[in-house]
Amino acid sequence: MRTGSAWSVPGTAALMLASLAALFAASLLGSTPLEAERVLAALLGRGTVGDQLVVVHIRLPRSLTAFTVGAALGASGAALQGLLRNPLAEPGVLGVSAMASLAATAALYTGYAAASAWSMPTAAIAGALAGTALIAFAALRTASAVTLILIGVGLSSFAGAAMNLLMSLAPNPFSLADMINWMLGSVANRSFLDLAFAAPFLVAGLCLLFAARRGLSALTLGEEAASGVGLNLRQQRLLVVLGTGLATGAAVALAGVIGFVGIVAPHIVRPMVDHDPARSLLPSALLGGVILVLADIGVRLVPTTSELKLGVVAALIGAPAFIWIAMQRRSVHD
């Protein structure tokens, strides 16, 4: 009965194929559907100028952004769940995304965002790191995940109120529209340049999380016993805080707040990898990416006059899932 280990490798390979299929589907579908041959030709640098514009410059960067953001949030969620030993931990629930979004909104408001292409990612990452550090600090003082989630609620409310304040003070309707984009979460009109500026932080964050993976397994035993089997707790916390801060910050810099992907993806993956947080990292990242690419295809296909926001759709699907997972929990775990 080694279901988890047996699943791990082919399952991850299947998710990689699914990722490619989802990205390809995202290039096919949209307000003007294209046939597979025309998409392939455009991707290979042939095809008409119009096709290339639609596929290479509009749809591909958009779907890649959705995938990257989903992957960052999926991995961050899996890592935070392992660190805090709770399936409800996630950058959105813990207020980390909201803090990143607040920092991004503040950067827009003050004009700092226009100063350089690095401004937006660094501001969002600073916000995310502040949020993650606060949660990790609180986790030192309490073993209760409920307390941490309540702190997350507080952080989210604070960030939301501060963003509302900035919005009501917005100097002009353009910056207001920009801010609303960050609050609601969207990957529309992203370019490869946006991706390139977020990528270094994202890759660094994911590398840190990957380095922390064995420690996440050890934390299954609880902190005291994990330390007893040889885990350096302080270093482990630092790795996960920095890793999720960088990855979530980069994701928010790219797409604003997109919640619940970090809960849903690891929740689906976990039973298939024997509930091992280490083995759930990579599949959670891939599945998070696939989910957001598919959700973004949905956003583009729904015939509405003004396009739905990806963050809104993700929350409409993810929040009920969150409630369902919370209701499945037995109180003995807290």
Partner: peptide, 16 residues
């Protein structure tokens, strides 16, 4: 070291 409190965070298999 076997501490007094031994909560397992996840329903992991025995071998793990």
């Amino acid at each position: 070291y076997l501490p007094q409190n031994r909560p397992l965070a996840w329903p992991s298999p025995v071998r793990d």
